[in-house]
């Protein structure tokens, strides 16, 4: 059990809802992995029933909604989208995503700070999708965010943790804050690694929805995230540059026998040489 913005959750796995083969597979993935927080977006809809149908599926599930501002390129667009999301999803949670570069979908740090300030003042709980930049994190924390969501690597790239040093630095610098890895995770082992670093949760989408069996992959991530967290809580050993035997050395059978045998053998050789 962990606490996020005053709410208790069992799962530390946050799942995106995009790109699944069917709504049924999405639903099964959510249920099989026991995720409790899912992300979604707002989009223009050809027919209003299209959005309504998706919303009806989500509303039936025992999950908390984290709407995003995906695709926004300006503060204005993101703030307006947040306003609309608050009304539709009836939550003040918003995953603030303001894209600064279309090639790698890297978030715009300057717009992110500006948008965060506006939305915090309006009573939103901002989940800022950000790079792993320490100074940016400090600016956001100074504004009053209670959560940071650094990327592991670009959205949908599946490259995993490309800068573990920066992620560790963020964790060490903000021990009291909720830190959630968002984007770039490709494998369950990478999610486990993030959790072993002490991250509070992992948000991902593509690695599950684009797998051959999304509900099975969602379960795999769920278990990896649980395992990684337990590993962190148990306290990982320090890495060393040398070997230390894990089996006790004292009482090792044949201890020194080899040396003694070598000595005996050498004596015999010496005697042989002395023999005329």
């Amino acid at each position: 059990m962990w606490s996020l913005l005053g709410k208790n959750f069992k799962s530390r796995f946050l799942l995106g809802t995009s790109g699944y083969p069917s709504p049924e597979v999405l639903k099964k993935s959510i249920l099989d992995s026991e995720v409790e927080i899912v992300t979604m977006s707002l989009r223009r809809s050809g027919g209003i029933s299209e959005g309504a149908a998706f919303w009806e599926i989500l509303k039936e599930l025992p999950v908390h909604f984290l709407p995003n501002t995906a695709g926004c390129h300006s503060v204005k667009e993101a703030v307006t989208t947040a306003h609309m999301a608050r009304e539709v999803f009836n939550t003040n949670w918003i995953k603030l995503e303001i894209i600064g570069d279309d090639y790698n979908l890297q978030p715009d740090p300057f717009a992110l700070v500006e948008g965060t300030k506006i939305l915090l003042e309006e009573g939103f709980e901002v989940f800022p999708y950000m790079t792993d930049d320490l100074v940016l994190a400090e600016k956001l924390v100074d504004l009053g965010v209670r959560i940071l969501m650094p990327w592991a690597s670009p959205i949908g790239s599946g490259k995993g943790l490309i800068n573990p040093y920066a992620l560790k630095t963020l964790r060490n610098r903000f021990p009291e804050l909720n830190l959630i890895i968002d984007a770039g995770i490709g494998k369950p082992s990478e999610a486990a690694r993030a959790m072993e670093m002490g991250y509070d949760g992992v948000l991902l989408n593509t690695a599950v929805s684009q797998s051959l069996t999304p509900n099975l992959m969602a379960s795999a991530f769920s278990e990896a995230i649980r395992g990684g967290r337990k590993g962190f809580e148990a306290g990982l050993m320090e890495e060393r540059d040398f070997a230390i035997p894990s089996t006790p050395v004292v009482g090792t059978p044949f201890w020194h026998n080899e040396k003694k045998n070598e000595k005996d053998s050498n004596c015999e050789k010496k005697n042989d040489l002395n023999t005329p």
């Binding site: 979604m40 989009r43 309504a52 998706f54 539709v88």
Partner: peptide, 10 residues
């Protein structure tokens, strides 16, 4: 005028 509805998202 923009009219938006819930859609999948990550």
């Amino acid at each position: 005028i923009e009219i938006v509805t819930p859609h999948p998202g990550g």
